[in-house]
Design a protein around this nucleic acid. Structure first.
Length: 423
RNA sequence: GGAGAGGUGGCCGAGUGGUCGAAGGCGCACGCCUGGAAAGCGUGUAUGCGUCAAAAGCGCAUCAUGGGUUCGAAUCCCAUUCUCUCCGCCA
């Protein structure tokens, strides 16, 4: 949620910057400004009314205690009409606040000045690529066939027991999963992250806090009986730790990491995008979350980018880094780097990580603040990224490392898998 | 799942209808004292919104959350939620 004062200060500029996201904000902004003015006026009137009522109530108390009940009763008459007025104003104010919030929630985050313009993923800007290239034999298999050949992932069994998008991993496949999770967590700890093991379900407040609600219900499962949401990413519990929190200055910066299962309904997905491991309803991911001083967030973003790149280097995977263009940038993000690994057998790039700076957009909604140098509270900046999501990493590892003698495990992982080849 | 007790400021804790945003203590900050420190003494110490160019000041709201009763609610009533204790069940 954008901060009102940013909009108030320079609505023109906000509107212009949102054009980079191809978002037409003009009418929304003027509605917001109107509502805000209205809110202020109403609040003033209401406060004045309440102040008067408070004054009268005090007076009545004094009159009673000094035995002047008649005078007190007279004053009571006066309060009746006053009360009616404040009740109306108060109800009105609530309405205004609700509409104001509703409008504010529709405004996306302002993109960083360096975000390239563009409409779709085709306009994303490639900012880095490593020099690993994979040449496969003509007979190379995509990972869903390798899964069957080596009996390491069973999609059919998952369909039988649960449904599409819920595979079983077995044998070396299951061990590879465990190895990757431990590898990613250990690397994060080495890099100074604090490990959490979060709840896999969150309540409604948390789902709102990180912006999954309202209106992204299509992405999340919902357990209606207890009104809980299985997390689509560990970002949700990991960031909501700090909902409604004022951090002391020595608590920043915060670097947290968590492994979790992630649950996504993925309503509306289809075709080759969902084949095999490419898109699942349940998958594993290690997520990193940073909370930092506003002046540091872009430095931190670069640190995160380098960190994620180092993981892919260690896994010896071909990858590229894209800076997302305005049109492809998410609603909440100010700047996002996507990491894609090249899947040689599918001959396409697969997104394995997305690292974003949300600036104060999330923290404004969550009221995540810290006490600044002057003792005043300020909104902190939040960032997060995958480090990494497993399924597509597994897909790329299986496909790119297939050979006549089996699937080779990169050296960095062998200590975790306990084997150097799936044969 | 059943029964009971409870949720007050950063923490502990008093407060059962009026002058209570809230005693007292701890902690923290600043000052005095000291060669320095401790102790002691003094002062200050919530958040949001509004007013204001800004600060101070002032006003409003907030004692788990939401509603109600009342001229007036931390205090009474209802609902929700969370915590604790006992019983039951259980990995």
């Amino acid at each position: 949620m954008l901060q009102l004062n940013i909009i108030n200060e320079d609505p023109q500029k906000v509107e212009e910057l949102l054009w980079i996201k191809n978002f037409e904000a003009g009418s929304l902004i003027s509605e917001i400004l109107d509502l805000d003015n209205c809110r202020r006026e109403t609040q003033k009137k209401l406060d004045d009314g309440l102040a008067e009522a408070n004054r009268l109530a005090k007076e009545i108390g004094i009159l009673y205690s000094s035995g002047r009940g008649d005078e007190a009763n007279e004053l009571k008459q006066k309060t009746a009409s006053l009360k009616k007025g404040t009740q109306t104003l108060s109800a009105g104010l609530e309405q205004i606040k609700l509409s104001l919030e509703e409008k504010l929630l529709q405004l996306p985050n302002i993109p960083h000045p360096s975000v390239p313009p563009g409409k779709s993923e085709a306009d994303n800007e490639q900012v880095a690529m490593n020099d690993i290239r994979v040449e496969l034999d003509p007979g190379a298999l995509p990972h869903w066939d390798l899964a069957v050949k080596y009996d390491i992932i069973d999609f059919d069994l998952g369909s039988k027991v649960t449904g599409a998008g819920f595979p079983f991993y077995k044998n070396h496949g299951a061990r590879l999963q465990r190895a990757l999770i431990n590898f990613f967590l250990d690397e994060a700890i080495k890099a100074g992250y604090t490990e959490y093991q979060p709840p896999l379900f969150v309540n409604e407040d948390s789902a709102y806090g990180t912006g999954q609600l309202p209106d992204k219900e299509g992405q999340m499962y919902h357990i209606t009986e207890d009104n809980l949401y299985p997390i689509p990413t560990a970002e949700v519990p990991l960031t909501n730790i700090y909902r409604d929190v004022i951090l002391a200055k020595d608590q920043l910066p915060i670097k947290n990491v968590a492994y979790s299962n992630c649950f996504r309904r993925e309503a509306g997905s289809y075709g080759k995008d969902v084949r095999g491991l490419n898109r699942l309803h349940q998958f594993d991911k290690v997520e990193i979350v940073h909370i930092c001083h506003p002046e540091r967030s872009y430095t931190v973003l670069e640190e995160m980018r380098n960190y994620v790149a180092s993981l892919l280097e260690k896994l010896e995977l071909p990858y590229r880094i894209l800076k997302l263009c305005g049109g492809d940038l998410s609603f909440t993000s100010a700047l996002t780097y996507d990491f894609e690994v090249y899947s040689a057998a599918q001959q396409r790039w697969l997104e394995v990580s997305s690292v974003s700076n949300f600036e104060a957009f999330q923290s404004n909604r969550m009221k995540l603040r810290f006490r600044g140098e002057d003792g005043k509270t300020r909104l902190a900046h939040t960032l997060n990224g995958s480090a990494l999501a497993l399924p597509r990493v597994v897909a790329a590892l299986l496909e790119n490392n297939q050979s006549g003698t089996g699937i080779l495990i990169p050296a960095a992982l062998q200590g975790y898998t306990g084997f150097d080849k799936i044969a």
